[in-house]
Design a protein around this nucleic acid. Structure first.
Length: 301
DNA sequence: AGGCGATCCTGAGGGC
DNA sequence: TGCCCTCAGGATCGCC
């Protein structure tokens, strides 16, 4: 579900609830939703059963930051990381939340219920001193998302170093480097998190429309002025979307449960068959990089 | 080596 | 109402 603007909106909304707060206890309801140190490499090892466990699964408590003091919340691309410190030194740990298509990361005040408590895979009970500070909840109906535990902040930094530069701050030079020598369609490149971190299907289509570049153009054949323009439009589109609190198509809400409003400003995403907002020609819709793609034959060359 | 297709899941919405 | 089909904001793996 969420792309960079939605993840950033969650980060901002969750910060005031968690910084300086201690995780009293944490519950994990499905082991396959967590990748912890020592687990086999790769993604989340899916179990066959879809039944939610009534009882928490046992894992080493520090993996879920149990007993740790939360010191920050970081984001790289679509990855969100809780940074926390256990007592007795040893530096910080990190717990990364990947939201996939349908993930939610929510804060609930004491006594505040969830609108829908199904598909809750993990929760963290929070305390400020001895006072109840509510809880954090990870929900993800489709389970394309999950959690990754890192024993040190350096391991998290090293892991996210596999990602490309953050799309909110992408420079023309960085984009030129990503594009160089790539024969794939430019949209496929934008969706590749190792090339550029944070852009997903919505914002790829929106940014390409704004700068007048067809999504199927070969990446390496973009001209220098087009690369500059594309980098500018990526940054600006994402920044505006963050200001609007992200795009809510179906289930996205921030940590406080508030939806975003940027979907009201989508020029092309989800508008195949409608008139182009700039020239009035019918917007084309097709498949590219296995994703529905919408563009204007007139405005994008 | 790099890029493509299939695959992992649940739920919403449309057609009949 | 119900059933069946298609589609969805993502990312990994295996194969060519």
């Amino acid at each position: 579900m969420p792309e960079l603007p939605e993840v950033e909106s969650i980060r901002r909304s969750i910060l005031p609830h968690v910084v300086g707060i201690r995780v009293a206890t944490a519950n994990l309801y499905r082991r396959d939703v967590l990748v912890a140190p020592g687990d086999p490499p790769g993604g989340f090892a899916r179990q066959r059963s879809s039944a939610q466990r009534p009882k928490p699964v046992r894992v080493r408590p520090e993996h879920l930051l149990e007993g740790a003091l939360i010191t920050g919340v970081e984001r790289r691309g679509k990855q969100l990381a809780l940074i926390a410190e256990l007592d007795g030194g040893g530096g910080g740990r990190a717990l990364v939340v990947q939201l996939g298509m349908s993930g939610q990361f929510l804060h609930r005040a004491p006594g505040q219920e969830l609108p829908d408590a199904s598909h809750v895979h993990a929760e963290w009970m929070l305390k400020r001193g001895r006072r109840d500070a509510g809880r954090l909840v990870f929900r993800d109906p489709r389970r394309f998302g999950g959690l990754r535990a890192f024993a040190t902040t350096e391991l998290w930094t090293h892991w996210n170093g596999e990602l490309g530069p953050d799309a909110l701050l992408i420079t023309p030079e960085q984009l030129a480097a990503a594009v160089a020598g790539s024969r794939r369609p430019v949209k496929a490149l934008l969706l590749d998190q190792a090339a550029l971190a944070g852009v997903g299907n919505i914002y790829a289509d929106e940014a390409l429309f704004k700068c007048g570049i067809r999504p199927d153009r070969e990446a390496a054949r973009l001209k220098p002025p087009e690369i500059v323009r594309l980098a500018d439009e990526i940054r600006q589109t994402l920044a505006w979307a963050v200001e609007a609190g992200g795009s809510t198509l179906r289930s996205y809400v921030d940590a406080d449960g508030n939806p975003g409003t940027f979907q009201l400003q989508h020029a092309v995403y989800g508008r195949g068959g409608e008139p182009c907002p700039r020239c009035g020609r019918t917007l084309r819709s097709g498949m590219l990089a296995q994703r529905t793609t919408v563009w204007c034959m007139g405005c994008q060359v």
